[in-house]
Design a protein around this nucleic acid. Structure first.
Lengths: 251, 251
DNA sequence: ATGGAGTGTGAGAGTGTGTAACAAGGGAGC
DNA sequence: GCTCCCTTGTTACACACTCTCACACTCCAT
C-alpha cells in the first residue's frame, strides 16, 4: 500500500516533488520497484472478492505485493464503523508497517493476485543488507506522509471537496500510469469510497449526482466516471490555482 | 514523534498488545531508547515558544529528539486551516519520516530543548549498520499506525468521543511514565487541541464544560484536568467494555 | 493601568446524517 | 430464458451536530 496519490492541496505542488499525499492509492513505481528488486520472488496466491488477506490483530507473517486486482486496507471500530486507510493497486506493497501484528485489515475488493514474501526471510536479509532496511524505511515513510494527507483532507474538507480531491487523485494516478486522465474506473463500491472519505454512502451518492448536474463529470455506469471539466473539479476540490498558473491564465 | 498513545478503541485491547493507536503523543520508551542508543550524541538547541523547528517543504537535514518542552507536528492548508498530526514530548523523535523534504511542520509549543542528529551521518551509519535501518523502519511504522488511529478517531467519532479519547490517551501516557493517571496537564492550547481533533476551539471548550458538569472531570485551571470517573470517560470515548470485563463487573 | 492572548458561553445557521422507500443490476435456481 | 432475491445505488426529508459569529472574562506581560 505504498501511498502516492497527492491530493494536490499545495499551490507549490510542483516545487515540492517529495510531498505526496494520501490518496486512494498510488503507484510510487520507482520505490516499489526498488523494493521488489530487493526481494526474492515470492509465492502468488489468489484471493476471491471480499476475502481477507489478513485482519487487524493477526500476527504479521508476510509482506504482500498486489499483482492484479485491488485491495482495501482498513481499520474497524467495534460498532462496525470503519475507515479505509488506502486502496492498493497492482505494484503496491501492503502490510509493510506491521512489526508483530497487523494494525489494519486487508480485504480483496475483487479477485486479486497477491505475491507474498515471508517476513522472517525479509528480516533475515535486512539484518545483512542495510540497503533493504532503508528501503523499507523509505516506503513506510511515504505511507506515513500519505496518511497525514488523508487526515488533512478528511478532517478539514467538505464532502464535495473530498470527493473532488479523490477523483483528481485517481486522475493523476491514471496520468502516471499512462492511462486516460479523464476516464476513471472506480473498482470500489460507494460504501468503500464513503469509508475512505469519512462520509456516508448517501452523501457520496448525492455528491456524485451534484457533480453530474453541474457538468463536472459524467457517470455512464456507476463504475465509470468521465471528467468533463478538470479545472472546475480542481476548484471544487478547494485547490487554489497557484499564483504562477493564475498569471499564465490571465496573460 | 514516535507515536504510541493508544485510543483504546478495541475491546480486545489487552489481547492485542502490539496494536497501539494515534494519540496526542506517545513515549514508546523502549523503541525510542533503542534508537537513541544507536545514535551518536547530537547537539542540543533551544527553541522559544512558537518558534518553528522546521517547516513543511523544507529540505530535511536533521532528525530531532525532544529533551524538554513539547512540539506540535502539523500540516497546513493554503487557507490557514491546519491539522496537528501529533504532539511530541521529551524522549520522542521527530522528523523521522522525512526523506528529502519535511512533509509537515514542527512548532515548539513552549520553550523546548531539541537534540539534533544530522541526517547525513544517520544515513552513513545506516548504510553499514543494518540494525539502525530496521529501527528506523520500526519507529516510522509505529507512527503510521498512530496516524491511522488518529484518522479513525477524527473521522468516525463525535466531538465528545474525540475529546474523551484524547484525555484517555494522555492518561495512559502518564501511566506509562509513572505519573498520576488521573491528573493530566495540558501544555497545549485549546486551539491546538481543536486542530488535533479536527474540531473548533468553541466545541472543545463546550465539551470540556459538558464533561465537567457531568462529573467526568474537574478543571482547576484550563491547563490541569483531573479525571473523576475514568470508567465513564471510557464510555464517553465510545470504547465498548469488553465481554470479559462486562462479565467481571456483573458477577 | 493597559493591552493582548487565550478561554468560556450564547444564539442562530448550515452541512451532513439517518431513516426511510424506491430503482437498478446481477446471480442462483429452475 | 425466466423469475426471484439479494445487493448496490439513488433520492427525499426531518433532525442533530457542529460551525460561525459575537461578546465577556481571566491571566499575564508590558
Amino acid at each position: 500500500m505504498l501511498a502516492n496519490t497527492d491530493y494536490g492541496t499545495e499551490t507549490e505542488q510542483s516545487e515540492q516533488p517529495g510531498h505526496e499525499a494520501a490518496g486512494p492509492s498510488r503507484a510510487t513505481p520507482l520505490r516499489a520497484d526498488d523494493l521488489a528488486r530487493s526481494l526474492p520472488g515470492g509465492m502468488v496466491r489468489v484471493f476471491a472478492a471480499k476475502e481477507h488477506i489478513y485482519r487487524e490483530g493477526d500476527p504479521a507473517t508476510h509482506v504482500y505485493r498486489v499483482e492484479a486486482g485491488h485491495v482495501c486496507i482498513y481499520r474497524g471500530l467495534p460498532d462496525g464503523r470503519r475507515q479505509i486507510v488506502s486502496f492498493s493497486y497492482p505494484g503496491d506493497f501492503i502490510a509493510l508497517g506491521a512489526i508483530r501484528r497487523h494494525s489494519a485489515s486487508a480485504l480483496a475488493g475483487a479477485k486479486t493476485h497477491m505475491r507474498s514474501y515471508p517476513l522472517a526471510g525479509l528480516q533475515e536479509i535486512a539484518r545483512h543488507d542495510a540497503a533493504l532496511g532503508l528501503r523499507l524505511y523509505a516506503a513506510v515513510s511515504e505511507e506515513l506522509a500519505a496518511a497525514h494527507d488523508l487526515l488533512m483532507t478528511v478532517t478539514h474538507r467538505s464532502a464535495g471537496e473530498r470527493l473532488a480531491a479523490f477523483l483528481l487523485a485517481l486522475s493523476r494516478r491514471n496520468s502516471r500510469c499512462g492511462e486516460n486522465e479523464r476516464e476513471i474506473v472506480l473498482p470500489m463500491t460507494r460504501t468503500d469510497i464513503a469509508d475512505f472519505l469519512g462520509l456516508t454512502i448517501e452523501t457520496v451518492s448525492r455528491t456524485f449526482t451534484k457533480f453530474r448536474i453541474e457538468g463536472l463529470i459524467d457517470l455512464e455506469q456507476c463504475i465509470l466516471v468521465t471528467i468533463c471539466d478538470l479545472a472546475a473539479l480542481e476548484i471544487a476540490a478547494g485547490n487554489g490555482v497557484s499564483a504562477r498558473e493564475r498569471l499564465e491564465l490571465a496573460s
